[in-house]
Amino acid sequence: MADDDVLVISTAAFIVIAGLSKRKKKKRWWTTKIYRNRLVTRGKLFLNDLMQEDGAHFRNFTRMSSDDFFYLLESIRDKITRSDTHFRKAITAEERLAITLRYLATGDSFSSLQYLFNVSKQVISKFVPEVCKEIINTLSQHVKMNG
């Protein structure tokens, strides 16, 4: 074989071997670990715990009774519900409403709410205005104006 042929074969073999021995990339997540564990650690479980108590804790937390909460939830559920994706579970309508009510009741910052519900402040800042809009649209029909 000529030197040129050996060089071409050696180069091709190197390229093939280098391509086969690539390291697998470490799996990347779109969210941090505390938010991935939201379904296990808090969120809906926290709301369920509040509702199982005597009712005063739930009322203090959301500033409304559980009956009023569920009435409002059923009124706006279809408009604030999002679908799960292959990458992550959607934040439930219950959690969206509870976070929004807690924000309206206390004026807590989104940073404070993110640790309470394990939902990132960026996501909270996107859905709170949407939920508020739907609350206004739903409850405006119950407000009677004297003119």
Score class of each variant (00 low, 15 high):
residue 1 M to W: 10
residue 1 M to G: 15
residue 1 M to V: 10
residue 2 A to Q: 08
residue 3 D to A: 12
residue 3 D to R: 15
residue 4 D to Y: 05
residue 4 D to T: 09
residue 4 D to I: 10
residue 5 D to F: 08
residue 8 V to A: 15
residue 9 I to L: 13
residue 11 T to S: 14
residue 12 A to E: 12
residue 12 A to G: 01
residue 13 A to I: 12
residue 14 F to W: 09
residue 14 F to S: 10
residue 14 F to Y: 14
residue 15 I to G: 00
residue 16 V to K: 11
residue 16 V to Y: 09
residue 20 L to C: 14
residue 20 L to R: 07
residue 21 S to N: 12
residue 21 S to G: 11
residue 22 K to D: 01
residue 23 R to M: 00
residue 23 R to V: 00
residue 25 K to Y: 04
residue 26 K to Q: 09
residue 27 K to P: 01
residue 28 R to I: 15
residue 29 W to G: 01
residue 30 W to E: 10
residue 30 W to N: 13
residue 31 T to C: 01
residue 33 K to D: 08
residue 35 Y to C: 04
residue 38 R to W: 03
residue 39 L to Y: 02
residue 41 T to I: 06
residue 42 R to K: 14
residue 42 R to A: 12
residue 43 G to V: 10
residue 55 G to I: 06
residue 56 A to W: 00
residue 57 H to T: 05
residue 59 R to H: 05
residue 59 R to I: 06
residue 59 R to N: 06
residue 61 F to I: 02
residue 61 F to S: 05
residue 62 T to L: 13
residue 62 T to V: 14
residue 62 T to M: 15
residue 63 R to P: 00
residue 66 S to I: 06
residue 67 D to R: 15
residue 67 D to M: 09
residue 69 F to Q: 11
residue 70 F to N: 09
residue 70 F to Q: 14
residue 71 Y to S: 13
residue 72 L to P: 08
residue 72 L to H: 05
residue 77 R to C: 10
residue 77 R to N: 08
residue 80 I to N: 06
residue 82 R to Q: 13
residue 83 S to F: 08
residue 83 S to V: 09
residue 83 S to Q: 14
residue 84 D to K: 11
residue 84 D to A: 08
residue 84 D to F: 04
residue 86 H to Q: 13
residue 91 I to H: 04
residue 93 A to V: 03
residue 94 E to G: 06
residue 95 E to N: 11
residue 96 R to S: 03
residue 96 R to M: 04
residue 98 A to Y: 02
residue 98 A to L: 03
residue 100 T to S: 12
residue 104 L to E: 02
residue 104 L to M: 07
residue 106 T to H: 07
residue 106 T to S: 12
residue 107 G to K: 05
residue 107 G to N: 07
residue 109 S to P: 01
residue 111 S to D: 09
residue 112 S to V: 12
residue 112 S to E: 08
residue 115 Y to R: 13
residue 116 L to M: 06
residue 118 N to V: 00
residue 119 V to D: 04
residue 119 V to R: 12
residue 119 V to L: 11
residue 120 S to K: 00
residue 121 K to W: 01
residue 123 V to H: 07
residue 125 S to L: 00
residue 125 S to Q: 09
residue 126 K to P: 04
residue 129 P to K: 02
residue 131 V to C: 13
residue 131 V to S: 03
residue 131 V to L: 12
residue 133 K to H: 03
residue 133 K to L: 11
residue 135 I to N: 03
residue 136 I to A: 14
residue 138 T to V: 06
residue 138 T to R: 06
residue 139 L to I: 10
residue 139 L to V: 09
residue 140 S to Y: 04
residue 141 Q to C: 02
residue 142 H to T: 10
residue 143 V to N: 05
residue 145 M to D: 03
residue 146 N to C: 03
residue 146 N to H: 12
residue 147 G to Y: 07
residue 147 G to R: 05
